[in-house]
Design a protein around this nucleic acid. Structure first.
Ligand SMILES: [Mn+2]
Ligand SMILES: [Mn+2]
Ligand SMILES: [Mn+2]
Ligand SMILES: [Mn+2]
Lengths: 219, 219
DNA sequence: AATTATTTTTAGACAAATCTAAAAAATATA
DNA sequence: TATATTTTTTAGATTTGTCTAAAAATAATT
């Protein structure tokens, strides 16, 4: 069976909101997709008949095995294309999300597999998110939110919590990217800001909001 | 202004049928796009309001300067992606057309320019068709239809007249591709078949239909 | 020139995806 | 528990691209 771009965007949105387990509400989906609750209800009925999800009125929605498989295929394409754009075409990591939003809907299976091979089967995209393999399996990164990192533990940035241009612009200004090594030097309880130190740089503080948008792994 | 995939496909089809100059009929377009004349009329009215073409009822259609520019941009994307698929991802030249049909509608300008640079600004696609540059200019290949090639003149295949899988399958079987060197040894007036000879191979005959689908340049 | 055949356009309908406004169900609060 | 608030669904329209069937215009034949 084949699906429209719109249907695929719904499936991907449900997958991300569902986050492994749990049920997703109509309003959550409407917000995520910048549409209205009534439109979401219509689409959920349609996707139910296509067996991509289980849905009972007023009870929220959950992807079926079928739906999860489709979601993983779309996420795989999205992240492979992002990797291609950054590593092959020299895009900045902050300019690839929108383009990948389109490329992820190109349907050729063979294209995805050939692209994956050409790129050398990468495990993580430019934002540190894991790329599902052709069977839908993805590496689990041992990572912790920067806000929870203990003081003076050497760590490196492994992923970011959002793809917003606002966040990526801020990170570029502060010279923080995937792989950046850092330590937390102090935590301020007044505003929950934290002081971090990058290699060969003076320590500086970052806001609670920024810290929460960064994930790190110990090195 | 931005355009839907459908609108872009209409513009590209008109461009190809128009072939430089001339006017395109509703029925020609309907056949090319596998749709009905009534649908074409509807779309032509719409594209006229968008100033992409000039159209008077019962008088056929012709692209405006604006429309030609858009058509060239789409053709550019189509052929660059085909080149990428064959030369970077190792697709066969007979399997790329359908995929490029989708990729040509990805909208990012930056993507096209970066792709072009990555590929080294190729001038011709895998089928020998010229790739428009970022200003819409394309190389003009000095080529002649194989059916018109004089006897015993060394020539090389420079492009094919269609992208159909049927044609490309036949060419693959006969080991003929872009760049293949050959000479015409005889022409048979009974069925207009011609005998050709490839390097290090015995001569063999090909049908009139096949000869007409091949373009060559003298070497 | 009159008739016939072909091409093209209109009229009206439909499916997909969306919206607003109102009704219904579920949840929270008093 | 009764009432108020929030969430979700239905009802009815709208837009886009398509279709069939019938009408109108053009082109081809006698
Ligand atoms: Mn998308
Ligand atoms: Mn990403
Ligand atoms: Mn296309
Ligand atoms: Mn081509």
């Amino acid at each position: 069976m084949s699906f429209t771009t719109t249907e695929e965007n719904y499936i991907k949105a449900i997958f991300h909101l569902q986050q492994g387990e749990g049920t997703v509400s109509t309003n959550e989906l409407a917000a995520e997709l910048h549409t209205k609750a009534a439109s979401v209800t219509d689409m959920l009925k349609k996707l139910k008949t296509k067996k991509l999800l289980s849905y009972e009125r007023y009870k929220g929605v959950r992807l079926s095995a079928e739906g999860k498989k489709l979601a993983l295929a779309i996420v795989r394409k999205h992240r492979l294309w992002e990797y291609f754009l950054v590593n092959t075409l020299q895009f900045g990591w902050d300019e690839v999300h929108e383009v990948a939003e389109e490329l992820e809907h190109v349907s050729s299976k063979k294209l995805v597999e050939k692209l994956d091979a050409f790129l050398g089967y990468p495990k993580f995209d430019p934002h540190g998110d894991p790329i599902p393999d052709s069977h839908g399996k993805m590496a689990v990164q041992q990572q912790v939110n920067l806000i929870d990192l203990p003081l003076n533990k050497a760590a490196e940035v492994s992923s970011v919590g959002s793809q917003s241009t606002e966040l990526l612009e801020l990170l570029k200004h502060k010279h923080i990217g995937i792989g950046t090594k850092l330590e937390v030097k102090r935590k301020f309880s007044f505003d929950h800001s934290i002081e971090i130190k990058l290699k060969n740089q003076n320590p500086f503080t970052i806001s609670q909001q920024l810290a929460q948008a960064l994930f790190v792994k110990l090195v």
